[in-house]
């Protein structure tokens, strides 16, 4: 298993954190992981993304010029990353916020109504969890759902841990 993943969206959609969640979950299953966020002025109000590599083998390059998996949470991110996905790769897009359909036919594209699922569970802020839940269902070899849920306690700051019940509900809902 070797996946090179981009998680992208608006600043505030929790894409950096979603990437870290995958890393901690996979790390605790003894896989090699790396995570590089976009940072600095890029983060102020614009798009945010992170490059994540999860692998059975030691990671050489942590950069992700051509992702095997892209999770895009808004339309600008779809426009930016759809063309970069490796042929045969996977694109998960947030169909709550993205109206147009991906154009690529040489990759698997999966829409998920991430915001709707999050809202249905009583939170406007767990859309990232819906995307991760969906990814886990499609690529369970990255990390088990159990590992992802356990990783929440590491990745989510103490201040926000009270929302973890909702996060878990959204993860499971999107996963089923």
């Amino acid at each position: 298993m070797h996946e090179e993943i981009i998680v992208a969206g608006f600043g505030g959609q929790g894409v950096i954190m979603a990437g870290k969640l995958l890393c901690v979950a996979a790390m605790n299953e003894n896989k090699y992981v790396s995570h590089i966020p976009s940072y600095g002025a890029e983060m102020r109000g614009g798009t945010a993304n992170c490059s994540v590599v999860i692998s059975d083998k030691e990671i050489s390059s942590p950069t992700v010029p051509k992702p095997s998996i892209a999770i895009v949470m808004n339309a600008p991110s779809l426009a930016k990353f759809e063309p970069r996905v490796k042929p045969g790769g996977l694109l998960i897009y947030n169909s709550s916020l993205i109206d147009q359909k991906p154009k690529r036919t040489d990759i698997t594209t999966v829409g998920i109504k991430a915001n709707d699922i999050s809202e249905a569970e009583g939170s406007l802020r767990a859309a990232n969890m819906a995307a991760i839940g969906k990814l886990q269902a499609l690529k369970p070899e990255i990390a088990s759902l159990d590992s992802v849920i356990k990783a929440l306690d590491v990745v989510i700051s103490a201040r926000n841990r009270k929302h973890n019940d909702t996060n878990i509900k959204v993860l499971k809902k999107a996963n089923s």
């Binding site: 870290k20 890393c23 790390m27 090699y32 992981v33 790396s34 995570h35 590089i36 966020p37 940072y39 990671i59 942590p62 950069t63």
Partner: peptide, 10 residues
């Protein structure tokens, strides 16, 4: 470098 500063790894 900036990438090494920002990267998270085990």
């Amino acid at each position: 470098d900036g990438y090494l500063g920002q990267i998270s790894e085990a």
